[in-house]
């Protein structure tokens, strides 16, 4: 036996949109994360795409990264796993906006 399956993905028991629909987001008018498309085009690791728990980073057909700020947990994973200095600029959203946890 190996440690819990390293390769196989478990069958998701809930669609990702339904998962995110359980979370309240008071969306701010301005984006609190800015992604520098030029830096991303040369990136081969794309750690943000898989690590972001809210799945906000989407690769585009031209090799860039599309980013949605609206449903962000404000956790900071994206800039911490990014190995390109300055590719992700991150700050907190305007006061009173962003994610609002009620049961966590």
């Amino acid at each position: 036996m190996t440690a819990l399956s390293r390769a196989g993905a478990a069958v998701p028991d809930i669609a990702f949109e339904d998962r995110m629909a359980t979370v309240e987001f008071r969306v701010a008018p301005d984006a609190h994360i800015v992604v520098d498309g030029d830096s991303c085009r040369g990136c081969t690791t794309r750690a943000c795409v898989t690590a972001c728990p809210a799945n906000l980073f989407v690769p585009t057909s031209d090799g860039g990264i599309l980013f949605n700020y609206e449903e962000c947990f404000e956790c900071g994973t994206c800039y911490m796993v990014c190995n390109t200095e300055g590719a992700i600029t991150w700050r907190y959203p305007e006061g009173g906006h962003g994610v609002v946890f009620h049961r966590s």
């Binding site: 819990l4 399956s5 993905a9 478990a10 069958v11 998701p12 028991d13 990702f16 998962r19 690791t45 750690a47 898989t50 690590a51 728990p53 799945n55 994973t77 911490m80 796993v81």
Partner: peptide
């Protein structure tokens, strides 16, 4: 974090796997 980044696995996928044990 570095292990998560290297693995290419998604966090919710790892929760689903735990829940399936």
């Amino acid at each position: 974090l570095p292990g998560l980044a290297r693995s290419g696995r998604r966090p919710e996928d790892l929760i689903a796997q735990l829940k399936a044990h």
